[in-house]
Design a binder for these strands. Structure first.
Lengths: 316, 316
DNA sequence: CTGAAAGCGCTTACAG
DNA sequence: CTGAAAGCGCTTACAG
């Protein structure tokens, strides 16, 4: 049954028939007890992320779940509090050793990551990294995504492209900013003081509010920006709202581009141009990488980069 | 350790100390093998529901997960295809008997429910029911929620209150419609032909599009409605968009009220008045009811009704 | 109240 | 290649 050892074809077939006739299913708990494996994988996200408007992290989960259907793993999804403390807030499946490995998606407490590392629990980070540390991770190609978004704006004639963003300490956001900046540079569209005038950065969690606030500040410039590249769709949606409130036309007066391609992007009025992040694929790759790590724990840490696609809609 | 049988206080304390000293954690797979329980609960939703813009069903999941933390259950989340067939598409945890019970949220394939019933697998339905069948379920008090929403509109002076809705075959939507209708009746605001003129019903899955379409049809009436009660927030957001597109003022010309209180409702422009459904509580109650059923499988099927709260915002 | 035996249903050496 | 034994770490009667 487990395709191990030497069995003659005849015996194999005989047994398979009996299995089918009896509709026999091995009992997982017995198998797990014998193999000392749990057959589970943990999926941990920050509580605020799961309660968010967007389905970003749920989609990553779904990608993992799809991949897990082919192997024999179950995914245990749990959230972790903002003020996580490994001493008291450890997810149950970690406390009771009920998982063979863990996927952490998005911003997660560093103390958790360190705990897993110390326990030698196999894990992979998705869409997050910790500065100065190299862990197994699946990342979005934020730099090229941002670069291509800015490039599209430039090619449609925009000259003064602004940037609005939150959680600037998040590595993904930093990379998007870098793509934005180098995109402008490579087209010589970044004069002295450009970044000072046309950039609104905050370190608070990204939100519509940040988009609204960012735009309202950018619109106090004498020379208004003619395009705004936002660090993600949520922020971009806030930006759109504020631009509309100020009676400016989108995209004629100001174009807006987001990042992520959350479902709302396509339903909004106007429809939001954005950089699509393949969320299901992120989940699938995370699952595959984690499996590789579980099978071979001494593998050196690796990073897999998932590329993005620019989606042009009404807002640009 | 399991608080069973007779143990002298001295022995109990001695053992507890040893447990603490050794940081002993029972191995779940061994326990499960011995007790013949899986320690897992399945959570099944329709694939389209999970990919939706709204977090409705994810929040119900989260409520269950919170409740599960106190007992020793893990929740296994999976989706089921639109054209589900029990012969080929059974979720793995059902196929391999890896759950002690199942929660099904929202609209689910009837063939799945029948399968579970036949297998005598304990299950509870959340926010769904099958006409003519009585199953264990946790339902939203849709009738009173709708009634109170309509009542609030009437009290703010609205006379011609319309209804826009999709998935009319869904029992929850039917109940919301009934609350709407009887609300109007009890204030004598429902003349002959009112429902014919001011009602737009479709049986397609609820969506922004249905809201937009419904409004565009309602606005062809000679006497425009002065309020629209939508079957849920998603539909209401579409309605808002279409009203704005027609250059009518919200709420001055037309008030709009939704149902559910999805996160977007509070962020939209204008902010959407709605009937709040306590999603976490739904999940928690579903978990509790399922536990009762697992402990006592011969319990007659029961329905637990969760009440709602009207939230007045800018759109009414 | 306490302690030891049997059994849950698998997998993994091991003897043949 | 095949078959039987031992063991995974619990729980549940059962003897005392």
């Amino acid at each position: 049954m487990n395709n191990k050892g030497y069995v003659s074809p005849e015996t194999s077939e005989r047994i398979q028939n009996i299995i089918n006739d009896l509709n026999y299913k091995p009992l997982h708990s017995a198998r797990k007890l014998a193999t000392r494996k749990t057959g589970n994988i943990g999926y941990i996200i920050w509580e605020s992320h799961f309660s968010e408007v967007e389905m970003f992290y749920s989609q990553i989960f779904l990608g993992m779940e799809y991949a897990a259907r082919e192997s024999d793993y179950y995914i245990l999804l749990t959230t972790v509090k903002d003020d996580f403390d490994p001493k008291t807030d450890l997810p149950r499946f970690l406390k009771y050793n009920d998982v063979d490995g863990v996927v952490l998606a998005g911003r997660v407490p560093h103390s958790l990551v360190e705990y897993l590392d110390k326990q030698r629990m196999p894990f992979v980070l998705v869409d997050y990294g910790i500065p100065g540390k190299i862990y197994n991770s699946v990342l979005i190609d934020n730099y090229n995504g941002a670069f291509s978004a800015v490039e599209s704006l430039i090619q449609s004639g925009r000259k003064r492209i602004a940037f609005v963003g939150g959680t600037f300490s998040h590595p993904s956001i930093k990379e998007r900013f870098r793509g934005y900046k180098e995109g402008l540079e490579s087209y010589n569209l970044i004069s002295d003081g450009h970044l000072k005038k046309y950039t609104y950065l905050e370190d608070a969690e990204t939100s519509r509010e940040i988009g609204e606030k960012g735009v309202s500040i950018l619109l106090t410039e004498k020379l208004l920006p003619d395009a705004i590249f936002c660090c993600n769709d949520t922020t971009a949606l806030g930006a759109l709202t504020e631009i509309q409130r100020k009676k400016l036309k989108i995209p004629q007066d100001i174009a807006v581009v987001g990042f992520d391609d959350i479902p709302t992007a396509a339903f909004n009025l106007p429809k939001l141009s954005t950089v699509r992040v393949p969320k299901l694929l992120l989940g699938k790759e995370a699952f595959k990488l984690l499996n590789d790590v579980i099978d071979n724990p001494r593998l050196p840490a690796q990073t897999r980069l998932i590329s993005t696609e620019f989606i042009k809609r009404e807002s640009s």
